[in-house]
Write a protein that binds this DNA or RNA. Structure first.
Lengths: 166, 166
DNA sequence: GAATTTACGTCAGCCTTGTTGACTTTCCAA
DNA sequence: TTGGAAAGTCAACAAGGCTGACGTAAATTC
């Protein structure tokens, strides 16, 4: 069982069994991760897709539709359906671009911000509990592994919003 | 930056901003996590739901349909649709239970194992690269935080398959 | 031994959220 | 002024969730 060292170190954490556990950890944890917002949204006419749109509009106010398309990785038809309902319901405002009038700059209305707060409060509460239970060293490792797991393009998206953190 | 103690401590890792980064890390990383199997499955008649079923049947051969329902957290109608195609296509075998003949014990056929290997090779490759890049300490933290993020019942499911690891 | 419960399968219908393809309108830039 | 990018929309479709209803076989309980 003492396989693999690369340069003297112990690589037991790279066994297939360890990797499988990591895979299942992602699967089960992601369920928990989405559970609370899903619960809030069920009953309303919204779903996870609406949550994602709201999250990223909140994070980057004045973002354009095509920015959002890139970040969310869906087709514009798919996003449009979601955005349409959010705009019609008065949660999101789409202002014609100042510089380029083809673009739409997206903003949350007061009502949209209220729902955003409700959703992210729930999601942060779970995250906070997990972070607190695990401790800062574990959190650092958590972030490091997740970042290494992203596709390069997504990693760029992720990192491009780091200004002002840490 | 030397944070972290518990009791008189610096809790900077629990700021809303840090939590938001964690939330987005989960979002982007999960995309990467599923990307490779998704690519393999597209074109075949299968999707992520088939992958999940195959994974957990592989992990726990002879598992029953209701076990699988609990683990996957879907309805039997939904699982049945997926299982039906896997059985018809000869990837999964459902044997009548020895002790309780109402139950069906599920197994991967040789063909099913072949697809499982293909899928998990791809997923493990990404996991392995991320683990290697992050290092064993980070991996430990990654697992700790994910585990803390699960719903208690899912955590039990996750942990109940730890026999023989580590 | 009869009644009830459990495990599984299946039919029918619905919803969300993803997809393609085709087309229009607006409007920037060469 | 014209080509092409950005955005929006219509239509049709698929995967994979869901509920409700019903059937059958087997186990369990009364």
């Amino acid at each position: 069982m003492a396989e693999g060292n690369t340069g003297g170190e112990n690589l037991l954490f790279l066994t297939d069994e360890q990797l499988r556990k990591g895979i299942e950890a992602m699967f089960f944890a992601y369920r928990g991760f989405t559970a609370d917002p899903d619960r809030i949204l069920e009953g309303m006419d919204y779903g996870r897709a609406h949550h994602r749109a709201i999250h990223f509009i909140h994070r980057s106010p004045a973002t354009t539709v095509s920015n959002l398309l890139t970040i969310l990785g869906v087709t514009k038809q798919s996003l449009n359906r979601v955005l349409r309902t959010l705009i019609d319901d008065g949660l999101v405002e789409a202002r014609v671009g100042r510089e380029d009038k083809r673009e739409r700059n997206l903003y949350l209305t007061a009502k949209g911000q209220e729902l955003e707060r409700q959703l992210s409060d729930a999601q942060r509460a779970r995250m906070r509990a997990a972070y607190r239970a695990a401790g800062p060293v574990a959190v650092q490792g958590f972030r490091t592994v997740l970042e290494a797991m992203m596709d390069p393009e997504m990693r760029r998206q992720y990192q491009s919003l780091r200004e002002g953190e840490r």
